[in-house]
Amino acid sequence: MPILPTSSALAATKTARRVGAIDMARGVALLAMALYHGSWDLTHLGLADFDLLGDPLWLAARTGILGSFLILSGLSLVLAAEGGIDRRRFLRRFALLVLAAGGVSAVSLAMFPDSPIVFGVLHHMAVASLLGLALLRLSWPVLLLLGLAVIAVGETVALPLFDDPWLRWIGLMTFEPESNDYVPLFPWFGGFLFGMALGRLWRPGVAVAPGGPVGRWFAWAGRHSLAVYLLHQPVLFGLLSLLAMGIGAEPADVRSFHTSCVATCTASGGVAEHCTATCRCVSDDLNRTGLWSDFIHDRLTADGARKVDGIIQNCGSR
């Protein structure tokens, strides 16, 4: 369930200069994000078994990483606007952000049609940037209170009205949609508002170049966070996929199916060895015939269900 960042949609104005501390902080957050995404990849490909969706520590890690990017982006927006917004630069960066978000949605739909990224972090950043522009004149106490209110509403309100696919980006729906990256307006915009409030309070001094190779690397990554975001996951997933194929690792959904299938079979009186062979035969044939995704997500048509029954009977008789 991948997460991530981008640099502020309006990184600079006519008079603003980069702040090394913010670049370095964003670079550190990028490393944490890459480690999280790598753990997701390892689990998805069957190379590890991290409980990213159930373990409180993993859930806290995701919240912390994503929240840090939103805070840094809200902070950057306020600092960048001090000398007046460079509209041309903002529109150019905003267009790039929208294109990147569209590209992520298209790729995720092709690779994971059952859980595409419809409103992920890049989509959120685009909307947050526009909303942030409208709130630039607010004082830090008001921004802080507004951020708390957004989080409170996002954590407590759930209305069927927002279950409509066109309204799910708001975040007040009654269920969590199937998506590898879902960052709705409520409650996550609260983090962006916290960053804006911090921007009202903090005035960085003279910009100082990060010291040492590690600091410079983090600062460089922070300055190019959108590019790093777009490139890191394809590289990580591709390399780990090659490793998984090389050692014959089973994807998480296949492994889960085998465990459940063998348990059901043996509970019905089957011999463990025969049950294991039968379940593996079923998963292999479902993958070979292109029925696996519909089967595992309970989307089989009547014809597909008949084909699955035939595969089960055929594998059981071997």
Rank of each mutant, 00 (worst) to 15 (best):
L242Q: 09
A128R: 03
R17F: 11
D298M: 08
R200D: 06
A81Y: 00
D163R: 00
L133G: 15
S129I: 02
A207P: 01
I71H: 03
A9D: 07
R18P: 05
V98G: 02
E273T: 14
A249D: 09
A110H: 11
R168F: 01
P184C: 03
G171F: 00
P177Y: 01
L286I: 02
A149F: 04
N287H: 15
A60Q: 00
T15W: 13
S73L: 05
M196Q: 06
S7K: 10
E273S: 14
R306I: 11
F189T: 14
D86S: 09
K14Q: 13
T43V: 08
S7V: 08
P116F: 01
L300S: 04
L75A: 05
A9H: 06
V118T: 09
L240W: 10
V150A: 13
G20K: 10
G120Q: 03
F175Q: 12
F175K: 07
I170N: 03
T276L: 14
M1R: 12
H232I: 07
P56R: 14
S76K: 00
V153R: 04
T289Y: 13
A252S: 07
V235T: 01
G54A: 07
L70C: 08
S139E: 13
G215M: 08
R255S: 12
R17A: 15
H44L: 15
G238D: 11
S108G: 01
S115C: 02
G316P: 04
A149R: 05
P160K: 06
G154W: 01
L243A: 14
S283I: 01
E273K: 08
P177M: 09
G270K: 11
G248S: 01
E155F: 09
I311Y: 03
A244Y: 09
